[in-house]
């Protein structure tokens, strides 16, 4: 796709459409995602309720759209927080040899524990399922990928000629790190952050599905699927549509990530 002579990837356009419909969608729908309407339970998808209604007569489309907002928020905040931890950590570890041994092994330990297990056990033990806590827990166990990437890129870059030349000119270490190394890392970091975004959506939905993430009645894609799981015979649509929403968003995000990868790594 072309805009003002610049190539815009189709996946990005679709992703924008998805985001806009998640933001604006709830405004166009009259149904409340939380209030019960017991006279209308288990309606199959029809023109009035495009995705049907659930056990309590709530419109599934409205719940999927509201749930999407929450999932996207959680992902956005967790990824930002991971970047905030991972980038300085990786720069420090890669640039200063004396820190690297300890810092890199901390990454190794964190990466050896299956991420979802850790998130699960901490979330359960914490027993606090406000959205902010979920963001904190997910970020606490997601920053390692970013940190590892930044570290390896820093290691590769710091012996390049221009870093040597800047050192000789006499600029400070901080300026070297943030003005010269960091800008040259942003491409790979953008790719990694995009893929992490998709992954966080999956993790959050799994956590909410298990019952340790976003708590009902607040809708989230994961907990809607869980509610539908108990009533598969009466209402297959309750579990199916939020799942489709997850697949479509994660797929678009990954496609966009692949596009970024091609752009940044193939020259």
């Amino acid at each position: 796709m072309q805009l003002k002579g610049k190539n815009i990837p189709v996946s990005f356009v679709l992703l924008l459409i998805l985001l806009i419909s998640l933001i604006a969608g709830p405004l166009l729908i009259d149904y409340d995602p939380v209030t019960h309407d017991l006279g209308n339970s288990y309606h199959a998808p029809n023109t009035g309720h495009l995705m049907g209604t659930d056990k309590f007569g709530r419109d599934v489309l409205a719940r999927v759209l509201y749930g999407g907002r929450i999932s996207i928020w959680v992902a956005l905040l967790s990824v930002s927080l991971s970047l905030l931890i991972g980038i300085p950590y990786g720069l420090l570890s890669g640039f200063f040899d004396r820190f690297d041994l300890v810092l890199n092994n901390v990454i190794n330990v964190f990466m050896a524990i299956p991420q979802f297990l850790l998130i699960l056990s901490v979330a359960a033990v914490l027993g606090k399922s406000s959205v902010l806590w979920i963001v904190l827990i997910i970020a606490l166990f997601s920053w390692m990928d970013i940190a590892r990437l930044v570290r390896n890129q820093t290691l590769a870059l710091k012996h390049k000629d221009f870093i040597l030349a800047e050192t000789v000119i006499g600029i400070s270490k901080m300026r070297l790190l943030f003005k010269h190394l960091l800008p040259n890392l942003m491409g790979p970091v953008a790719v990694s952050a995009t893929l992490l975004f998709g992954n966080v959506i999956l993790v959050e939905s799994a956590l909410s599905f298990v019952g340790l993430g976003v708590q009902p009645p607040t809708p989230s894609w994961g907990n809607i699927i869980n509610e539908g799981r108990q009533v598969l015979i009466d209402g297959w649509w309750i579990s199916v549509f939020p799942g489709v929403a997850i697949v479509v968003s994660v797929l678009l995000i990954n496609l966009f990530g692949e596009y970024l990868q091609e752009r940044f790594f193939k020259y």
Partner: peptide, 12 residues
């Protein structure tokens, strides 16, 4: 596409 599908949803 498979890569983007949550495992629990496949199960369901």
């Amino acid at each position: 596409v498979l890569y983007a599908v949550p495992s629990f949803w496949i199960g369901i």
